[in-house]
């Protein structure tokens, strides 16, 4: 297993280039219980990237997540939908330990999230995250934003990291903004820098928490285009969004949450045309 990963970790560019769009439609439409059964004897199956089992999370007396169980396979694109306050952000933030869950298991790429700092460090360097508010470092230039972690966490040399940053900026379509400060960029450009910053760590999974919600309508597309390209290159992605178009076209699976629980899981086709649950129907009638 480790050999396999070594090979893949060679370089971000190489990895993204080598993997073609090769996801079998429908294959991933496994019900939650099936997935759970499949990995019950091992920590997780080989191509399971994120495994959550009975995850509970409380904020004081308030239970934000209850019994979340789901598996995300390698190279899968999962969109999480749900009304405000349903716990989407909380869940996604538990996956790289920005919040600590209290019960259940979260296993990322075969590593279980526990209080062990080393595991947390390892998982954080495998998981990239993009925030609604971009959260770029305002005192650093775009290049320095991107190269900071590769230099200090991945221990890359500066020229190497800068080369990587340049190629990533090229990829997200803003190579000319390298020397600017975040405050000098538009929202859409900032979010694309944030994506480049996350990609610079060469993550195996990317988490997106409403990446377009703070953007003006005309900038949403440029960010979604980058995300779509990323999806096509074979990245495993978990996306919280209100962009139904993106969910319909790019997602392999849609997970619908409400009140801290997973209500329904299915392919976009199933989800948007023929939902089973009443609550899903109600939600769709409100947003579509």
């Amino acid at each position: 297993m480790s050999d396999e990963r070594e090979e893949r970790d060679d370089s971000a560019a190489g990895r993204f280039g080598a993997h073609t769009y090769q996801r079998a439609q429908g294959e991933n439409n496994v019900s939650i219980s099936d997935a759970t059964v499949a990995v019950s004897d091992e920590l997780a199956a080989r191509d399971d990237m994120i495994v959550c089992r009975d995850v509970d999370k409380w904020f004081g007396d308030f239970q934000a997540l209850s019994g979340i169980t789901a598996t995300i396979k390698e190279q899968e694109i999962v969109v999480v939908l749900g009304p405000s306050g349903s716990g989407k952000s909380t869940w996604i933030r538990c996956i790289n330990r920005l919040e600590a869950h209290q019960n259940g298991q979260i296993i990322v790429d075969g590593i279980e999230l526990t209080n062990d700092l080393r595991n947390i460090e390892k998982i954080r360097s495998e998981v990239g995250m993009v925030f609604q508010q971009f959260n770029l470092f305002p005192h650093l230039t775009v290049v320095d934003n991107i190269t900071l972690a590769p230099i200090w966490v991945r221990k890359k040399s500066r020229p190497e990291a800068e080369e990587l940053a340049a190629s990533l900026l090229e990829r997200v379509g803003i190579p000319e903004q390298a020397e600017k400060f975040p405050g000098q960029l538009s929202g859409g450009q900032q979010q694309r820098v944030a994506i480049a910053r996350a990609l610079a760590m060469e993550p195996r999974v990317m988490l997106f928490d409403e990446p377009t919600s703070a953007l003006d309508p005309e900038m949403i597309k440029e960010v979604l285009d980058v995300m779509e390209e990323l999806a096509r290159s074979g990245m495993t992605m978990m996306v919280v969004t209100h962009e139904m178009g993106f969910a319909r076209e790019v997602a392999d699976r849609v997970i619908f949450m409400e009140g801290g629980e997973i209500v329904e899981v299915g392919t976009p086709h199933h989800f948007f045309t023929d939902p089973t649950e009443e609550r899903t129907k109600l939600f769709l009638s409100q947003v579509l």
Binding site: N96, R97, L98, E121, R124, S125, V127, G128, M129, F131, N135, L136, F137, L148, A149, W152, V153, A194, R197, A198, A200, M201
Partner: peptide, 9 residues
Amino acid sequence: EASDAVGLS
């Protein structure tokens, strides 16, 4: 959060 997410100590 952003610093944690990119893996800085």
